[in-house]
Design a protein around this nucleic acid. Sequence first.
DNA 1: TGCGTAATGTTGATATAATCAACCAACTTT
DNA 2: AAAGTTGGTTGATTATATCAACATTACGCA
Lengths: 143, 143
Amino acid sequence: MHSQLIEHIFAISERYRLTVRGAINASELGIGAMHVRSLKIIAETPDCTANHIVIKLVRDKAQVARLVKELLNIELIDKNAHPEDKRSQILTLNAQGKKLMKQLQHAQEKIQRQMLQGLSAEQQQQFEDIAQHISLNLMPSKD
Amino acid sequence: MHSQLIEHIFAISERYRLTVRGAINASELGIGAMHVRSLKIIAETPDCTANHIVIKLVRDKAQVARLVKELLNIELIDKNAHPEDKRSQILTLNAQGKKLMKQLQHAQEKIQRQMLQGLSAEQQQQFEDIAQHISLNLMPSKD
DNA sequence: TGCGTAATGTTGATATAATCAACCAACTTT
DNA sequence: AAAGTTGGTTGATTATATCAACATTACGCA
């Protein structure tokens, strides 16, 4: 059985996280991996709400609320009233957030080049497809 | 670029962790994913030391020291003097630890069957090989 | 239209995991 | 013998996660 498989997955996840952190001086900004992931979701989602982030990250809404609050505090994002639902706010990157997002993108591209080194395009695609398959297999079911 | 790739990796890692946790009633025992990983390392390593766990998990030795201490406190492992190095202790699973290890193995086999469902043996092997390749690519270098 | 339920978000409290620094004893190298 | 390194411990702090309770708003149904 592939008991080593999950250790490789853990290793990739942990090292990627550490590498991104180092690359953007996360400590200086007082943000961590989860802040970064939230920023990415806000960047790529029109009309992004906290609830959307909860769904995407599969996280407790309390936790996401705190992440959003922290991003507002360090002025990387703005929030605006939802046009239709008074409970919600629309989250967007502000100028500073967009700037950081660019830096982040450079860092992540570099890391991805490193991680995918020595792999053919076909292998990369296969790996991504299987990773998606596995992650869906592990999706918490509703029943 | 495969910016979704790392999100799949994160998803697999996080869901696996949660699933194992649930499967062995980790909260009852007061242990978490890192305890479990440490137990596995102790189980499969003759003459296991805390330092060996540090190397395997790529973790701060302070953290591993605390993990080991907690495992000693809940009486899943024993420690014995190292025959040659007074600084070290040899860690081993005791009867209770071995029992839990069996439970854990059942749980992990089940989860792995779930995660690998719908994948051919060849795909599984390819995925594991590429995962190992990627994790080595991300290994922190000494220079 | 009013009521009950669900959804969105917030806050407090607590638990798990991780990191940095300083320290001690033991081992290795010079 | 002294200096440097290693294995481990502890305190302090930070990051991440989860549970529970709550308030407000939205929705569905009788």
